[in-house]
């Protein structure tokens, strides 16, 4: 049994504890879910490190490794949010974001994703690639949080709760956006420059990263127009995250390009 498989079952335990807490509200279940969440993230990081040592390169070169990293970072972000927010932590947000991390991990554990450890082909042997992929996923993990907060904003009836969800959405996108810009757009362009001699080539993956970037740019600029705040901005935040998912999965299966190894 691999570290990621153990992490999968522990995270399942965390989710069960969260569901029980949502039903009967006992602090002990929050504590259990937090411990399980942390444990799961640690195991995923151990998996990441051991694979990296085995292949003698940072293990971010295929779909399985990307999913493990993405899931671990999402869990760390939820964990840190829960710690920082303390009693003010919004349980539905924690549950929703954990569910995204769980979905990513489920996909990584499924038979459709190959798990072999293969050292990287020449094009992937670049530390700009490592920066590109890691920063892009860290940014996207914050967008995952904003996706959940945006959904709960649209579902909420209470204005105070809506304000809290909106603030958390803006905060997570404000952190994720510069990281995503640096990773997905700029570091990716620098890698392409060293590998293929051009910063930009309108490859479908590049174009979709730009579409996603434009969408979050739109979100951040809408904050400056009063009429467009609130519901419209939240819908754009949801669309933005769906675009990140399409960039990650959809482009690989529906469109062809240079990023076929991811």
């Amino acid at each position: 049994m691999t570290f990621s498989t153990i992490a999968f079952f522990i995270l399942l335990g965390s989710m069960i504890a969260q569901i029980v807490n949502l039903l009967i509200e006992r602090k002990i279940f929050i504590f259990i879910s937090m411990v399980f969440m942390a444990l799961s993230a640690i195991l995923l990081l151990i998996d990441f490190v051991t694979r990296s040592i085995t292949m003698n390169f940072v293990s971010l070169t295929n779909l399985y490794e990307s999913l493990i990293f993405y899931s671990a970072v999402t869990l760390i972000i939820v964990f840190v949010y829960t710690l920082l927010a303390g009693k003010k932590a919004l349980q539905p947000i924690i549950f929703g974001t954990t569910m995204i991390a769980f979905a990513l991990l489920s996909l990584a554990s499924s038979p459709i994703v190959p798990k072999e450890i293969n050292p990287p082909i020449p094009a992937l042997q670049s530390y700009w690639l490592v920066l590109h992929v890691s920063f892009a996923f860290i940014g996207e993990a914050f967008f995952a949080l904003s996706f959940v907060t945006s959904i709960f904003y649209l579902l909420a009836r209470d204005e105070v709760k809506k304000k809290e969800f909106e603030k958390l959405t803006i905060k997570s996108i404000s952190i994720g956006y510069p990281i995503f810009t640096a990773g997905a757009i700029l570091f990716g362009a620098i890698w392409a420059y060293y590998a293929w001699g051009r910063f930009w080539g309108w490859d479908p993956k590049e174009t979709w990263a730009l579409i996603t970037w434009f969408t979050y740019t739109l979100f951040l600029h809408l904050r400056l127009i009063k009429k467009a705040q609130g519901k419209v901005a939240m819908i754009i935040s949801i669309i933005g995250f769906l675009f990140t998912l399409f960039t990650f999965f959809g482009v690989n299966y529906l469109l062809s390009g240079l990023h076929s190894y991811t």
Partner: peptide, 24 residues
């Protein structure tokens, strides 16, 4: 104006999405 920026961004997003589904 910010409105022009927003209109242009929305146009570029939608048209780029369409373009990615058409072989270039």
């Amino acid at each position: 104006s910010m409105k022009l920026a927003i209109v242009l961004i929305v146009y570029m997003v939608i048209s780029s999405i369409i373009a990615t589904f058409i072989p270039q």
